[in-house]
Amino acid sequence: MSTQTRILTGITTTGTPHLGNYAGAIRPAIEASRSGDAEYFFFLADYHALVKCQEPERVMQSRLEVAATWLALGLDPERVTFYRQSDVPEIPELTWLLSCVTAKGLMNRAHAYKAAVQENLDAGDADPDRGVTMGLFGYPVLMAADILIFNAHKVPVGRDQIQHLEMTRDIAQRFNYLYGEHFVLPEVVVDEATAILQGLDGRKMSKSYNNTIPLFVPEKELRKLIMRIVTNSQPPGEPKDPDGSTLFQIYRAFATPEESAAMRVRYAEGIGWGEMKQVLFERLNGVLAGPREHYQALLADPEGLERILLEGADKARAIATPFLARLRAAVGLRRLA
């Protein structure tokens, strides 16, 4: 097992990354990866994408866009291991080994499965499992394999994923009990300071609400989206509450503490919503213009992106292949002679 701390982050590939993804996950992960005090693993969770998305072209396009986004924003594939989940066949094989020691009762308690069942019950469906695939039901085991194949010590997640990390620990403990100490028990990392941005309508920015601001839309489209952000009817000159303002919340995520403090003063002085929207547009466009150009260059060179991802897969498999060989031997899948 590695003596250096390993930190692993999965990136779903079912849509186009937006400002909320950047502020809440991408930026802090990339900044942490530059510290040099740990081994970092970043992967495109394209097997996970198949649980909810059966649109091949959408999955393909999202993999391209997500990979380009992380690289355009500064992820250095030389410093980290950056790979596609589907390029590491040891992950699905480990998923099966782990499935064989995972209690069905544990999976029954998974939030996503329980929510699907409850939705059917609420609809009066005679079959509580209608529409539930084995992919959805076994999702936590695949997530456990993602983490355990590299014996990751820490996994940064949102609060909605804490249960899956607890399940990973349970599964790892069961495997260790049966076959010897092979897995470290990963630690969940929840950054309470991580920004959660509101979207165009004031609710949490989310693809499911259709209220997102995509990271790399053209400049004119970015301005149009910002102008659509919902505000109240307070006129210019009337003092406003920055803490209840979506505009301020997004601005603060892209400003220094000093700039945010200065903006609070302007709110107290009654800055108009139109002026604030223009200020926000200029700030975001200034931050994103360079990465946007890099992103477009990466999209125009899919062969280059493919090389980067395959090189990352080679780095990942250099760890995963010998480790899985030991796990196969541990469970009795050894050569006969």
Rank of each mutant, 00 (worst) to 15 (best):
N176G: 05
L64Q: 09
P242I: 11
K277E: 04
T3H: 07
P128V: 11
S245A: 15
L142F: 10
L8N: 02
L185Y: 09
I91S: 04
V88A: 02
Y40A: 02
S33Y: 09
I319R: 08
R109P: 09
G20P: 05
D129P: 00
K154P: 02
Y113A: 13
R79C: 01
S208V: 10
G199N: 13
A262P: 00
A316M: 01
E31A: 15
H18V: 02
N211H: 12
L142C: 09
Q54C: 04
L324H: 08
P56S: 11
H111T: 15
A144I: 07
G312V: 00
M205L: 11
E55Y: 04
Y22Q: 04
N210V: 00
K220R: 15
F183W: 06
T133V: 13
P235H: 12
T16V: 10
L305I: 13
M107G: 08
G332Y: 10
R109V: 07
I7N: 03
R328N: 14
A289H: 12
L142H: 09
G312E: 00
L215Y: 06
A262T: 07
R63K: 15
A262D: 14
I271E: 12
P302G: 12
E57P: 06
E166G: 12
N176V: 04
A29H: 05
P89M: 06
F42T: 00
V88N: 00
E221C: 02
M276P: 00
I226N: 10
V265K: 14
I11Q: 03
F137T: 09
E258K: 15
K204Y: 08
I11H: 02
G270K: 11
L19T: 04
P239W: 02
L19W: 03
D37L: 04
D241A: 07
E293V: 13
V189G: 02
I162R: 14
L106Y: 06
P214C: 08
A329N: 11
F323H: 11
I149D: 05
L97F: 12
I171Y: 07
P214M: 07
R326K: 15
D146H: 12
L333I: 12
P77E: 00
N210H: 14
G237Y: 13
V101I: 15
H48F: 12
F281K: 06
A193Q: 14
